[in-house]
């Protein structure tokens, strides 16, 4: 069991900074998720923790020991890869035991640890099969089993579910959560899928362009995004961001006051989540419906304001909405997020 600490971690290729000064404390037993768009550096950061990439500056400590100068095998980590990275010429048993065998662990102990992992992951019937004879989900379980067998301080997951189909992904997500509850290890999990991040994480680290945008629990990120990027990244459909003006003590969209300005003046961005909009007679946002998407239990309504800004509302699926008609929508003031023109949050 172990903590993980990154301080001042940087990575650059020539003049290009890929990871720019990252500081992070991961508690013992915490499941932390790095999330961000493709190419934001989250995988690179994970590979730096693993020791597969060098660190240009800063330090990485696991369980209080500095590890950034150690080879991967001596850092007390295990990693699960997106492509599973199973050895194609070894059967499941061979894959599970490979690292231990290489490390010179006695055969009896290898057997015992392999059997235990196989039991946890229900791999027993598959032990003699080669990876090519397994389904995607089974391969993924073997890859996780290979990590368990090593009894690492920290588990690293690099987008482990991206290659699975949608239904299996949901299933494996639950499996990983159960595994975390059972083992209680520190885990670092990288994904570009915000739903995965929300459902799995104790805490989420949102990364963009090699920098941490915000760290917090899933609900903190949802309720109080630190900036427009996090606001747009967490939640589905994405938060609407409307150009607005602060006049007096009100935030105006077009000429309609939406919420209190709390002393801010000038141009701002107003963020409203689609699910926080509702139809109401006295609603101040008057939008013309352009597209109406029916999902059964709910519906997404795409609307256009008089000044041609567009936004989406998530409404009850039972409502009947006519494209081309104008509707009034309202939002509670506490559900309004105000960002300055650079995207930084300004109300609390």
């Amino acid at each position: 069991m172990a903590t993980l600490e990154l301080s001042g971690v940087k990575k650059s290729f020539g003049d290009v900074g890929v990871i720019k000064d990252i500081n992070l404390q991961v508690q013992d037993g915490e499941l932390i998720v790095f999330v961000g768009p493709s190419g934001c550096g989250k995988s690179t950061l994970l590979r730096m923790i693993a020791g597969l990439e060098t660190v240009s500056a800063g330090s990485i400590s696991i369980a209080g020991n500095r590890v950034d100068h150690l080879p991967p095998a001596r850092r007390g980590i295990a990693m699960v890869f997106q492509s599973y990275a199973l050895y194609p010429h070894k059967d499941v048993r061979g894959n599970l035991g490979f690292a231990l065998k290489h490390a010179g662990v006695p055969a009896a102990e290898i057997n015992q640890r392999v059997s235990k992992a196989a039991e946890i992951l229900e791999l027993e019937p598959l032990m003699e099969r080669k990876p090519r004879e397994l389904s995607g989900g089974q391969r993924q379980r073997v890859a996780i089993g290979r990590a368990i067998v090593r009894e690492p301080d920290v588990f690293l997951f690099d987008e482990p579910l991206s290659n699975l189909d949608a239904a299996l992904r949901v299933h494996m997500r639950v499996e990983i959560l159960k595994l975390h509850q059972r083992l209680g290890n520190t885990m670092v999990y990288v994904t570009h899928d915000q739903v995965e991040a929300m459902t799995l994480a104790d805490r989420i680290v949102v990364i963009r362009d090699g920098e941490v945008e915000q760290v917090g629990t899933p609900l903190e990120l949802y309720r109080h995004p630190a900036n427009a990027f996090v606001a747009g990244f967490i939640g589905s459909p994405a938060m609407n961001l409307l150009d607005a003006q602060c006049v007096g003590d009100k935030v105006l969209v077009g000429d309609q006051p939406i919420c209190a300005a709390n002393g801010v003046a000038g141009a701002v961005q107003l963020g409203i989540r689609p699910e926080h909009l509702s139809l109401s007679e006295e609603g101040v946002l008057k939008g013309t419906v352009s597209v109406f998407e029916h999902l059964g239990g709910e519906s997404f309504v795409h609307l256009q304001l008089p000044d041609e800004q567009t936004f989406v509302a998530k409404l009850d699926g039972e409502l009947s909405i006519t494209p081309g008609q104008t509707y009034s929508l309202s939002v509670k003031p506490e559900h309004c997020h105000v960002f300055d023109t650079h995207g930084h949050r300004i109300n609390n």
Binding site: A50, L52, R74, M79, F81, S83, A99
Partner: peptide
Amino acid sequence: SREIKDSARIDGLSEYRIFFEVVIPL
């Protein structure tokens, strides 16, 4: 996939052994 070689590195294999034990079978 490069990941299989990275996986071997995490398992502690030297670059030579990665070639003979992982790449050759691949």
